[in-house]
């Protein structure tokens, strides 16, 4: 018995206690499992705050139009705000190249097999990144509706994209991800006319069932439809920095 719980040890100051056989102590902790990542995320956030940069984390399935949204946003806010992008993908520099082609600085993180970005990856990508020349930093997370939701990167807000080709019940299927959203964007809204099974109101009602008060905007970056509420939402946060 006493070998298990240590109850045979002298009471009070037990330092240097003689213990001829191995014993086990139960140590209560209550620490967050991702404490290391959280500490790194707080460090990143201090970096952003020190530079007066608003950091926005974009999360969605692959192919929902995150990069297309960023291209259109960079074009729309040109001359008004200075934008930089950190891109997360398993492989290729393709997305960073698309952003640079729009004249904005971009850093590509290739995660190999990792299905999400973490705070340490973002920190490494920030080295040498011109934060002092930026107002707004987008972090385009790896396309995935599960894993990225668990890792704080140091962002100020989370924007989740749901393309209308994916199905309006995604918030009910992936509650952890959609619950994290400060804003939900229904993308590729120009396709709504040819899709008979996506109901924007149903998508919003699934989001509300997660006790989320996040605004929901439908837009099409490619066809420049409904971009104004999204741009105003960004402006509001940029002014509040």
């Amino acid at each position: 018995m006493c070998d298990d719980c240590g109850c045979a040890l002298p009471p009070g100051g037990t330092a240097q206690a003689y213990s001829p056989s191995p014993r086990t102590d139960a140590v209560p902790l209550l620490r967050r499992l991702l404490e290391g990542n959280d500490a790194q995320a707080r460090h990143n956030r201090r970096h952003f705050d020190a530079h007066g940069v608003l950091a926005v984390n974009l999360m969605s399935s692959p192919g929902s139009g995150k990069t297309a949204l960023l291209e259109a946003t960079i074009d729309a806010l040109r001359g008004e705000y200075r934008i930089g992008v950190i891109e997360g993908d398993l492989e290729t520099e393709n997305d960073a190249a698309r952003i640079r082609a729009r004249g904005a600085p971009a850093r590509q993180i290739t995660t190999g097999t990792a299905c999400h970005l973490d705070a340490a990856m973002v920190h490494r990508a920030l080295h040498g990144f011109p934060l002092h020349d930026l107002d707004l930093l987008f972090i385009e997370n790896v396309g995935n509706l599960v894993c990225p939701a668990s890792f704080d990167l140091g962002q100020h807000c989370d924007v989740v994209l749901l393309s209308v080709t994916e199905g309006d019940d995604k918030p009910a299927k992936y509650p952890v991800m959609f619950r994290a959203a400060d804003l939900l964007l229904l993308t590729k809204s120009d396709l709504l006319d040819v899709l008979d099974d996506f109901d924007a109101r149903r998508a919003e009602s699934h989001l509300r069932e997660l006790a989320s008060a996040a605004p929901v905007f439908a837009l099409s970056a490619r066809k420049s439809l409904g971009m104004q509420p999204w741009l105003d939402w960004l402006r509001e946060r940029l002014e509040a920095r």
């Binding site: 240590g6 102590d25 902790l29 967050r32």
Partner: peptide, 18 residues
């Protein structure tokens, strides 16, 4: 929550620092 609640640590050897 995603929490490390507790650990059971083993101590062997003649002298242990608690």
């Amino acid at each position: 929550e995603m929490i490390l609640e507790s650990l059971s640590l083993t101590f062997s050897g003649a002298v242990s620092h608690v």
